[in-house]
Protein backbone atom coordinates (compact mmCIF):
# COMPACT_ATOMS: atom_id res chain seq x y z
CA UNK A 1 0.00 0.00 0.00
CA UNK A 2 1.09 3.53 -0.59
CA UNK A 3 1.17 4.66 2.99
CA UNK A 4 2.86 7.73 4.23
CA UNK A 5 3.42 9.04 7.71
CA UNK A 6 2.03 12.42 8.55
CA UNK A 7 3.29 13.29 12.00
CA UNK A 8 3.27 9.67 13.06
CA UNK A 9 -0.31 9.12 11.92
CA UNK A 10 -0.28 6.71 9.05
CA UNK A 11 -2.47 7.88 6.20
CA UNK A 12 -3.38 5.90 3.14
CA UNK A 13 -3.63 7.59 -0.20
CA UNK A 14 -7.32 7.41 -1.03
CA UNK A 15 -6.83 7.76 -4.76
CA UNK A 16 -4.50 4.81 -4.83
CA UNK A 17 -6.84 2.79 -2.69
CA UNK A 18 -9.72 3.64 -4.98
CA UNK A 19 -7.72 2.66 -8.04
CA UNK A 20 -6.73 -0.66 -6.47
CA UNK A 21 -10.27 -1.39 -5.44
CA UNK A 22 -11.42 -0.61 -8.95
CA UNK A 23 -8.82 -2.89 -10.45
CA UNK A 24 -9.75 -5.65 -8.08
CA UNK A 25 -13.47 -5.37 -8.63
CA UNK A 26 -13.46 -4.80 -12.35
CA UNK A 27 -10.34 -6.74 -13.26
CA UNK A 28 -10.07 -9.78 -11.09
CA UNK A 29 -13.63 -10.23 -10.00
CA UNK A 30 -15.05 -9.39 -13.44
CA UNK A 31 -17.76 -7.20 -12.01
CA UNK A 32 -17.73 -5.22 -15.24
CA UNK A 33 -19.95 -7.77 -16.92
CA UNK A 34 -22.48 -7.48 -14.11
CA UNK A 35 -22.50 -3.73 -14.42
CA UNK A 36 -23.00 -3.90 -18.17
CA UNK A 37 -25.78 -6.39 -17.73
CA UNK A 38 -27.45 -4.22 -15.11
CA UNK A 39 -27.23 -1.16 -17.31
CA UNK A 40 -28.83 -2.96 -20.22
CA UNK A 41 -31.85 -3.87 -18.15
CA UNK A 42 -32.13 -0.53 -16.51
CA UNK A 43 -32.27 1.98 -19.33
CA UNK A 44 -34.51 4.70 -17.99
CA UNK A 45 -35.27 7.31 -20.61
CA UNK A 46 -35.61 10.86 -19.44
CA UNK A 47 -38.83 12.68 -20.10
CA UNK A 48 -37.66 14.94 -22.89
CA UNK A 49 -40.13 15.52 -25.67
CA UNK A 50 -38.81 17.32 -28.66
CA UNK A 51 -41.40 16.75 -31.33
CA UNK A 52 -44.25 14.80 -32.72
CA UNK A 53 -42.50 11.42 -32.48
CA UNK A 54 -43.44 11.77 -28.83
CA UNK A 55 -46.80 10.31 -29.80
CA UNK A 56 -45.12 7.07 -30.86
CA UNK A 57 -42.76 7.25 -27.91
CA UNK A 58 -45.79 7.32 -25.63
CA UNK A 59 -47.35 4.45 -27.55
CA UNK A 60 -44.21 2.40 -27.00
CA UNK A 61 -44.87 2.42 -23.27
CA UNK A 62 -48.58 1.79 -23.73
CA UNK A 63 -50.04 -1.64 -22.92
CA UNK A 64 -49.89 -2.93 -26.45
CA UNK A 65 -46.13 -2.64 -26.80
CA UNK A 66 -45.12 -2.15 -23.17
CA UNK A 67 -41.44 -1.34 -23.28
CA UNK A 68 -41.31 -1.61 -19.51
CA UNK A 69 -40.87 -5.33 -19.95
CA UNK A 70 -37.31 -4.59 -21.09
CA UNK A 71 -36.71 -2.69 -17.89
CA UNK A 72 -37.02 0.72 -19.48
CA UNK A 73 -39.06 3.02 -17.30
CA UNK A 74 -39.59 6.65 -18.37
CA UNK A 75 -38.49 8.78 -15.46
CA UNK A 76 -39.07 12.33 -14.56
CA UNK A 77 -35.81 14.06 -13.75
CA UNK A 78 -32.58 13.87 -15.77
CA UNK A 79 -30.46 13.24 -12.69
CA UNK A 80 -31.94 9.80 -12.16
CA UNK A 81 -31.99 8.56 -15.72
CA UNK A 82 -29.37 7.28 -18.07
CA UNK A 83 -30.61 7.77 -21.57
CA UNK A 84 -32.39 10.21 -23.82
CA UNK A 85 -34.68 9.41 -26.68
CA UNK A 86 -34.69 12.43 -28.94
CA UNK A 87 -38.16 12.31 -30.40
CA UNK A 88 -37.90 13.90 -33.76
CA UNK A 89 -37.04 17.39 -34.85
CA UNK A 90 -34.86 19.46 -32.60
CA UNK A 91 -35.52 23.13 -33.08
CA UNK A 92 -33.00 25.82 -32.27
CA UNK A 93 -34.90 26.77 -29.17
CA UNK A 94 -35.06 23.15 -28.03
CA UNK A 95 -31.43 22.35 -28.79
CA UNK A 96 -30.33 24.31 -25.76
CA UNK A 97 -32.75 22.42 -23.53
CA UNK A 98 -31.59 19.14 -25.04
CA UNK A 99 -27.97 19.93 -24.37
CA UNK A 100 -28.66 21.04 -20.80
CA UNK A 101 -30.64 17.89 -20.15
CA UNK A 102 -27.81 15.81 -21.52
CA UNK A 103 -25.30 17.60 -19.35
CA UNK A 104 -27.46 17.05 -16.29
CA UNK A 105 -27.54 13.29 -16.64
CA UNK A 106 -25.01 11.15 -14.81
CA UNK A 107 -22.58 8.94 -16.70
CA UNK A 108 -22.83 6.38 -18.27
CA UNK A 109 -25.44 7.92 -20.53
CA UNK A 110 -26.71 7.07 -23.97
CA UNK A 111 -28.70 8.78 -26.68
CA UNK A 112 -31.18 7.37 -29.16
CA UNK A 113 -32.24 9.65 -31.98
CA UNK A 114 -35.71 8.82 -33.20
CA UNK A 115 -37.22 9.65 -36.53
CA UNK A 116 -36.07 11.00 -39.84
CA UNK A 117 -35.86 14.53 -38.51
CA UNK A 118 -33.33 13.47 -35.92
CA UNK A 119 -31.31 11.72 -38.62
CA UNK A 120 -31.09 14.47 -41.18
CA UNK A 121 -33.97 16.82 -40.90
CA UNK A 122 -36.54 14.61 -42.59
CA UNK A 123 -39.37 16.61 -44.08
CA UNK A 124 -37.97 19.72 -42.51
CA UNK A 125 -34.51 19.41 -43.98
CA UNK A 126 -34.56 22.98 -45.25
CA UNK A 127 -36.30 24.58 -42.34
CA UNK A 128 -34.59 27.60 -40.83
CA UNK A 129 -35.36 26.64 -37.27
CA UNK A 130 -34.01 23.12 -36.87
CA UNK A 131 -30.66 21.66 -35.92
CA UNK A 132 -29.44 18.12 -36.33
CA UNK A 133 -29.33 16.44 -32.95
CA UNK A 134 -25.93 14.91 -33.72
CA UNK A 135 -24.56 18.42 -33.73
CA UNK A 136 -25.73 18.91 -30.20
CA UNK A 137 -25.27 15.59 -28.42
CA UNK A 138 -23.45 12.37 -29.34
CA UNK A 139 -25.94 9.82 -30.62
CA UNK A 140 -25.61 6.07 -30.09
CA UNK A 141 -28.49 4.61 -32.04
CA UNK A 142 -30.64 6.08 -34.80
CA UNK A 143 -34.15 4.99 -35.61
CA UNK A 144 -35.29 5.77 -39.16
CA UNK A 145 -38.92 6.35 -39.97
CA UNK A 146 -41.38 9.18 -39.96
CA UNK A 147 -42.55 8.49 -37.36
CA UNK A 148 -40.94 5.15 -36.45
CA UNK A 149 -43.52 2.68 -35.17
CA UNK A 150 -43.28 1.59 -31.53
CA UNK A 151 -41.75 -1.69 -32.61
CA UNK A 152 -38.82 0.23 -34.03
CA UNK A 153 -38.31 2.06 -30.76
CA UNK A 154 -38.30 -1.22 -28.88
CA UNK A 155 -35.88 -2.57 -31.43
CA UNK A 156 -33.61 0.42 -30.91
CA UNK A 157 -33.60 -0.18 -27.19
CA UNK A 158 -32.53 -3.76 -27.82
CA UNK A 159 -29.85 -2.54 -30.22
CA UNK A 160 -28.56 -0.17 -27.61
CA UNK A 161 -28.49 -3.00 -25.12
CA UNK A 162 -26.43 -5.13 -27.46
CA UNK A 163 -24.08 -2.26 -28.05
CA UNK A 164 -23.58 -1.74 -24.33
CA UNK A 165 -22.94 -5.42 -23.76
CA UNK A 166 -20.56 -5.82 -26.69
CA UNK A 167 -18.54 -2.67 -26.20
CA UNK A 168 -18.77 -2.75 -22.41
CA UNK A 169 -19.78 0.87 -22.41
CA UNK A 170 -20.96 1.05 -18.82
CA UNK A 171 -18.00 -0.66 -17.16
CA UNK A 172 -15.47 1.10 -19.36
CA UNK A 173 -16.85 4.36 -18.15
CA UNK A 174 -16.02 3.25 -14.61
CA UNK A 175 -12.45 2.38 -15.64
CA UNK A 176 -11.69 5.30 -17.91
CA UNK A 177 -13.96 7.92 -16.48
CA UNK A 178 -14.88 9.06 -19.98
CA UNK A 179 -16.46 7.58 -23.05
CA UNK A 180 -13.68 7.71 -25.58
CA UNK A 181 -15.73 6.20 -28.36
CA UNK A 182 -17.78 9.38 -28.27
CA UNK A 183 -15.70 12.47 -28.52
CA UNK A 184 -17.43 15.29 -26.80
CA UNK A 185 -19.74 16.94 -29.25
CA UNK A 186 -19.73 20.67 -29.01
CA UNK A 187 -22.88 22.18 -30.47
CA UNK A 188 -22.07 23.65 -33.88
CA UNK A 189 -24.50 26.47 -33.46
CA UNK A 190 -24.02 28.54 -30.39
CA UNK A 191 -27.57 27.77 -29.40
CA UNK A 192 -27.26 28.44 -25.69
CA UNK A 193 -24.75 31.30 -25.88
CA UNK A 194 -22.30 29.11 -24.04
CA UNK A 195 -19.08 30.43 -25.40
CA UNK A 196 -19.93 34.01 -26.05
CA UNK A 197 -17.64 36.22 -23.90
Amino acid sequence: MDVKAVDKVYVGNINVAARRARELLLGKLKLGDVIDWATTFSLWPVHLLTSCCGAEFAATWSPRFDAEQYGALPWVAPRQTNFIIIEGTVTRKMACALRITYEQMPHPKFVIAMGACALDGGLFYNSYNIVRPWEVVPVDVYIPGCPPPPEAVARAIIDLRRKIREKKLASRWLIEGWRHDRDPVKPADDVCKWWRP
Binding site: V34, I35, T39, S62, E68, G71
Partner: peptide, 25 residues
Protein backbone atom coordinates in the same frame (compact mmCIF):
# COMPACT_ATOMS: atom_id res chain seq x y z
CA UNK B 1 -53.12 -1.59 -16.71
CA UNK B 2 -53.32 -4.70 -18.89
CA UNK B 3 -49.65 -5.06 -19.63
CA UNK B 4 -46.77 -7.23 -18.53
CA UNK B 5 -44.52 -5.00 -16.53
CA UNK B 6 -40.88 -5.89 -15.86
CA UNK B 7 -40.22 -9.20 -17.52
CA UNK B 8 -37.26 -9.94 -19.74
CA UNK B 9 -34.28 -9.96 -17.39
CA UNK B 10 -35.58 -13.11 -15.75
CA UNK B 11 -38.85 -14.42 -17.15
CA UNK B 12 -39.13 -17.16 -14.53
CA UNK B 13 -38.86 -14.75 -11.63
CA UNK B 14 -41.34 -12.42 -13.27
CA UNK B 15 -38.71 -9.84 -14.07
CA UNK B 16 -37.53 -9.47 -10.51
CA UNK B 17 -33.94 -9.23 -11.71
CA UNK B 18 -34.82 -5.95 -13.40
CA UNK B 19 -35.09 -4.40 -9.95
CA UNK B 20 -31.68 -5.87 -9.10
CA UNK B 21 -30.35 -4.36 -12.31
CA UNK B 22 -31.80 -1.01 -11.36
CA UNK B 23 -30.07 -1.23 -8.01
CA UNK B 24 -26.70 -2.12 -9.54
CA UNK B 25 -27.08 0.60 -12.14
Amino acid sequence: QRRIGPYWASPRLGGFMIIVADMIR
